[in-house]
């Protein structure tokens, strides 16, 4: 592991914008909300939209993002072959 940190160097010459800070906070809040909603079991995106107060397209975007990041995995598709369910990924 490195002893000197180059992050200290850039911190002296750059500041983080309020917009970037807000975006990070927003993602954290959405992530927490969605992961909490999935704690009770697999859910489809419309089912999540009924449970959490987020626009459905925001849920889709973030479920797909959490799937990419390895927090969520794809479950079964429903009987009408329309919506997949998503569930928390079991951490090994």
């Amino acid at each position: 592991m490195k002893t000197s940190k180059t992050i200290d160097h850039i911190k002296k010459i750059r500041t983080v914008s309020e917009e970037v800070k807000a975006k990070r906070k927003e993602f954290n809040t959405i992530k927490r909300t969605l992961l909490k909603a999935l704690e009770s079991g697999p859910k489809s995106i419309p089912q999540l939209a009924e449970e959490v107060e987020l626009p459905i397209d925001v849920i889709t975007f973030n479920i797909m993002t959490l799937r990419k990041y390895g927090d969520v995995e794809t479950g079964e598709i429903d009987d009408s072959d329309e919506y997949f369910s998503y569930q928390l990924k079991q951490k090994k």
Binding site: I45, T60, F84
Partner: peptide, 11 residues
């Protein structure tokens, strides 16, 4: 995970 609608994840 499949071809889906970006709005609501419907196939």
């Amino acid at each position: 995970n499949a071809v889906l609608r970006p709005k609501d994840g419907k196939m």
